[in-house]
């Protein structure tokens, strides 16, 4: 099924509350398949909150309440019939700080496939681990020490391991929450290169506070400010010809 260019994630009038406090107001946007979409904005603007709505990671916070509709592959994910486990297998996530499990590199990548019973034999599992590590551009660095703990890798390698772990489950959408913010510039460049490669097969949504990064990796950009989606469009348009004054102020460094 070729979904290229189709709408993969669609949000309509999404409101999010933490207890009595409203964190997001009437967010409406469509994310296209096989593109990189970046969410930018000053800290506390709600971009990460919105990202976590897309695979319902917010459900883990007791006081968080989500209103409105978010459709992934045409299905309302806040519908009662939705199974969270299946949803998160479909919409993977990479976190701000690399968080490999305290297990071997191999086990880290195999974990998701094992819990979802995705492979029928040991050799298939090993093949898929290798494939995922290759696609995460980590294979050459770790192929000789797959049985060593994932926590022993460098920060950049750990983050790529987390990406390999996520793509091993074969999601359609990958959410990335400031994936390079804890990394040095060289490791960041590698991650950005990887994102560029990955969009062939995945729809990627990335939260970043670096406007340069958004400009480098994404085709679509959404600018959030104080819980509102201020502007959403082609990355080139947002950065060269912003329509809203607040966007203009942000990208020129007057607010942030």
């Amino acid at each position: 099924m070729d979904t290229k260019g189709k709408i993969q994630v669609s949000a309509k009038d999404v409101n999010v509350f933490y207890g009595d406090k409203q964190a997001l107001q009437n967010i409406t946007l469509d994310v296209k398949s096989n593109k990189v979409t970046s969410f930018i904005g000053p800290s506390g603007c709600g971009k990460t909150t919105f990202l976590k709505c897309i695979n319902r990671m917010n459900d883990l916070i007791d006081i968080c309440r989500v209103e409105g509709n978010i459709l992934v592959a045409g299905q309302d994910i806040y519908d009662k019939s939705v199974d969270m486990v299946a949803l998160r297998a479909h919409v993977g996530m990479v976190f701000q700080k690399p968080n490999p499990f305290p297990k071997s590199i191999f086990e880290n990548v195999a974990y998701g496939m094992k819990i979802h019973n995705m492979t029928s034999s040991k050799s298939e599992l090993a093949d898929r681990v290798e494939d995922s590590l290759r696609r995460a551009a980590l294979w050459d660095e770790v192929k000789d020490r797959l049985d060593q703990p994932g926590t022993g890798l460098s920060g950049g390698q750990q983050q790529r391991l987390c990406i390999a772990r996520t793509i091993a489950v074969q999601p359609k959408v990958i959410l990335m929450d400031e994936p390079a913010s804890a990394l040095d510039p060289i490791a960041t460049a590698k991650i950005e290169e990887l994102i560029h490669e990955l969009k062939q097969n995945f729809t990627i949504i990335i939260v970043t506070h670096s406007m340069q990064q958004a400009a480098r990796v994404s085709q679509q950009t959404a600018f959030f400010h104080l819980g509102n989606l201020v502007e959403f469009g082609k990355t080139t348009d947002i950065f060269t010809n912003p329509q809203d004054e607040r966007t203009q102020n942000y990208i020129t460094g007057r607010i942030g």
């Binding site: 299905q75 994910i77 519908d79 199974d83 486990v85 299946a86 479909h90 995705m118």
Partner: peptide, 17 residues
């Protein structure tokens, strides 16, 4: 492999049980 997340496959049902 289907990845429709509303469909409760037997394996998922087992996991939830």
């Amino acid at each position: 492999m289907t990845n429709s997340f509303t469909d409760i496959t037997p394996s998922l049902r087992r996991r939830h049980a």
